[in-house]
Write a protein that binds this DNA or RNA. Structure first.
Length: 764
DNA sequence: CAGTGAGCGAGCTTCCGCTTGACTT
């Protein structure tokens, strides 16, 4: 048994440190937090100084048992949880759980996981910083109070199972606010004028692309400008050259990795984090949940060697980056490869491309700035006073661009021109351009915004974005956009042509949209708890947490000051017993029955209602369809929805009924269900279309079964993912290269046996 | 696998932040 024991948070980290220290140390991992407030109850005594009730986390009993055993058998125990607020708290909980005296704890901090840094840190242990622990307790208690008092209020006032919190509610607000900005945006258009010239250079002619510095609002102005250009003589007025530098990017943090992997590789934030976790566990990269831009000295030297070796000394530019992120805790290094000489790592395409991205960015961060020369040529003519500009950009020294380019880097060369040079006009276009509303958030852009506001942490960005989607506040969607006409004038060979063309406007891919529920919840929170969903709430309370950490504020007092007025407002809202907040709107009355028609949020989401609630006669209900909005639904649309289930005809002696189920609209015929295609309006479905649907559905059913071996109930079926074997309620994959048509019952049994064995193996 | 929504009342839902698995059609 080793004489010394070191406790860290991550098992992978434990493994790495073991390599550095050898058998003298027993190294264990807590695998994150080990104690927390209870899951099912508030766990805070608000009447008695907010005394928190901490319990060991469920599922952690084995970890805790192992820790206890190891500590008992060790002469000296070092607690080396992460050097940040949460890490300090884990150390403190650990000490309590292991029955150690807080004052006797040997607390060490590894700011980077290198042999030297670890050995160095072990030589000067300190005590637990109880003030930092108190800052964490304040953070934890405040989040619990906000979450566990606001959420039940939403259950009562809006809909069950909803949630609200300091972080998620602000994330939802960002998306709702952006959507409202887009809705309020007034689109305008103006004509952008571009021209193509030829410059004589020796015997050859070179093209120069230029743009008019101003845009025309009115069609008449465009026309008269173009007319005045017919037969005009163009010449260069002046040439302006500027040297500029493009600075190398900082190495990756969690947030910037998510952004770049989203932009360049089209990964969702969850996908990026899962891949990064794999690379980390395989030892290819450093820890992937970090807000630090720091690189260890060892890493700096290693990167410099790699850069110099590949590109030459003049490309190496070692530097340290300082974080600008509010509230950054910098417990780890930036995300980088552990071995820069490895240009490729990872066992599949996605892992390899993410590794490659990290490798390139790390290299770039230690490379020289790029030098570019920006040229602006101003062009005038003898017929009017307007000026055109041609812009060129040439990279004179690529620096970091050798390895790391962003998408918008295009070189645009201009011929050598001097003032007075004549230019021959080939073509001039005036194209109507529309102003763009602000862009909707993608997942990584939302993370970026959250980081700027200081809400959430590297370990919670991806889970928070999943939560707001799981709660139904937000959906990630593609929208195809609509066709939009625009006007274009072309001046060529002395004549002007006017055309109307069409473009796709407002098409989006993988962007976040608020749902009706998201909007209603957001409106409710802004109305009654504006201070908490305020963008600056976190930043303000973080200042208090800092004061607690510095010993200048007492944490119970801080929580008291927050809680009393907050709780009073919760009580106040609860007192208004019969007042709900379901975004209800009266649309009008049904012409047939004369009853009122409403839209509102129901127990299962947005719905329309015919007749009054709380009356003798039960009202009729119908859910809104995808794409229909609480705020914009019309009376006619509502009446359409209420017309279901609807008999649309008869076929083979049975009636056909159209309605909506769990899985969308369907036709019911002879006790069987046939789903409607996603495109198309269920209200407009004709009897002929329904019959076709029924027939193709029957065909599919017939093709589904390849074999039915009867005995032992083994069947070979065609499924969503291709042919498979179904037996005893379980499904089995058919190995590649096997023809499902030729399978015998014996072969099926063999395949099933094999698959059971490999499953048993993978469990171990 | 093919709704639901009143009212009664049981019992459930919920936060943020730190870590990995255990699951697969």
């Amino acid at each position: 048994m080793a004489a010394h024991c070191i406790i860290v948070e991550s098992p992978s980290k434990a493994k790495t440190i073991k390599k550095y220290l050898g058998d003298d140390y027993h190294i264990l991992a807590t695998v994150g937090h080990i104690r927390d407030l209870p899951k099912k109850e508030l766990g805070i005594d608000t009447k008695h100084n907010f005394e928190p009730k901490y319990v060991a986390l469920s599922g952690k009993s084995e970890v805790i048992l192992n820790l206890k055993k190891a500590v008992k058998g060790s002469e000296k125990v070092y607690i080396a949880t992460d050097p940040d607020r949460e890490g300090e708290a884990i150390a403190w909980h650990l000490a309590h759980l292991l029955g150690m005296n807080i004052a006797d704890v040997n607390r060490v901090s590894f700011h980077e996981i290198t042999k030297h840094a670890v050995q160095e840190a072990l030589t000067h242990p300190v005590g637990i910083n109880v003030e930092l622990v108190n800052a964490q307790q304040a953070r934890r208690v405040l989040d619990r109070l906000v979450g566990f008092e606001l959420s039940p209020l939403l259950w009562k006032k809006i809909k069950p199972s909803l949630s609200a919190g300091r972080v998620q509610s602000v994330a939802v607000r960002l998306i709702v606010d952006r959507e409202e900005e887009i809705e309020a945006f007034a689109v305008e258009s103006a004509f952008k004028v571009t021209a193509q010239f030829l410059a004589e250079e020796g015997n050859a002619a070179e093209t120069v692309n230029a743009e008019l510095s101003k845009r025309f609002k009115k069609e008449d102005d465009v026309r008269s400008f173009l007319e005045s250009c017919i037969g005009a003589r163009f010449r260069v007025d002046d040439v302006d050259k500027k040297q500029a530098k493009k600075q190398a990017p900082a190495p990756f943090t969690t947030s910037t990795l998510q952004q770049e992997a989203g932009r360049k590789l089209h990964f969702s934030v969850t996908q990026t984090m899962m891949l990064a976790q794999k690379l980390y566990e395989a030892g290819h990269i450093t820890y992937m949940r970090t807000d630090s831009l720091n690189l260890s000295n060892l890493a700096l030297a290693m990167i410099k060697t790699q850069v110099s070796g590949m590109f030459g000394e003049e490309y190496a530019h070692p530097r340290k980056f300082k974080t600008k992120t509010k509230g950054a805790q910098e417990a780890h290094e930036a995300i980088r490869p552990t071995d820069m000489s490895r240009q490729e790592e990872g066992e599949n395409k996605n892992l390899r491309s993410l590794y490659r991205l990290i490798w390139k960015r790390t290299m770039a961060s230690q490379m020289a700035a790029a030098d570019v020369e920006r040229t602006t040529v101003r062009i005038v003519n003898d017929k009017n006073d307007e000026r055109l500009e041609a812009k060129g950009e040439v990279v004179t020294f690529p620096g970091f661009l050798k390895v790391y380019q962003s998408d918008d880097e295009t070189e645009n060369m201009l011929p050598a021109l001097k003032p007075g040079d004549p230019l021959r006009l080939c073509e001039m276009d005036a194209t109507e351009k529309y102003t763009q509303p602000p862009a909707r958030y993608s997942e990584p852009m939302l993370v970026k915004k959250m980081e700027e506001l200081g809400i959430g942490r590297p370990s919670t960005y991806a889970p928070t974005i999943s939560t707001i989607q799981n709660r139904g506040y937000v959906v990630k969607e593609d929208r195809p956009g609509e066709d939009r006409d625009y006007r274009q004038f072309t001046l060529k060979d002395g004549t002007i042509v006017r055309e109307i063309k069409t473009e796709k406007a407002n098409a989006v891919k993988s962007k976040l949209f608020p749902t009706d529920i998201g909007r209603v919840v957001n409106r409710f929170l802004i109305n009654f708890f504006d201070d908490i969903v305020n963008y600056n709430f976190t930043a303000r309370i973080e200042e208090d947490f800092d004061k607690i950490a510095e010993g200048q504020m007492e944490w119970h007092a801080m929580i008291r000051e927050f809680y009393d007025p907050f709780h009073a407002r919760i009580e106040e809202a609860l007192d208004k017993k019969n007042e709900t907040f379901k975004g209800e709107r009266l649309l009008g009355s049904d012409p047939v029955t004369g009853k009122n028609v409403y839209v509102k949020i129901g127990r299962f989401g947005p719905m329309v209602q015919l007749g009054e609630s709380k009356t003798e006669e039960k009202p009729k209900f119908a859910s809104l369809l995808n794409g229909q909005r609480l705020d914009s639904l019309t009376l006619n649309e509502a009446l359409d929805l209420l017309s279901f289930p609807k008999v649309i005809g008869e076929y083979q002696g049975e009636s056909m009924v159209v309605s909506f189920g769990k899985f969308g609209p369907y036709v019911k015929h002879g006790g069987k269900f046939y789903s409607l295609p996603k495109s198309g309006d269920p209200a407009a479905l004709t009897a002929e279309q329904a019959i076709e649907l029924i027939e193709t559905g029957r065909d599919k059913q017939r093709n589904k079964t390849i074999h039915d071996f009867g005995k032992e109930k083994i069947r070979v079926l065609n499924g969503r993912y291709g042919p498979y074997i179904a037996a005893g309620g379980k499904n089995f994959k058919i190995p590649k290269g096997t023809d499902p048509q030729s399978l015998t019952p014996e072969q099926c049994r063999e395949i099933m046996e094999k698959s059971k064995k490999t499953k048993a193996k993978s469990k171990k």
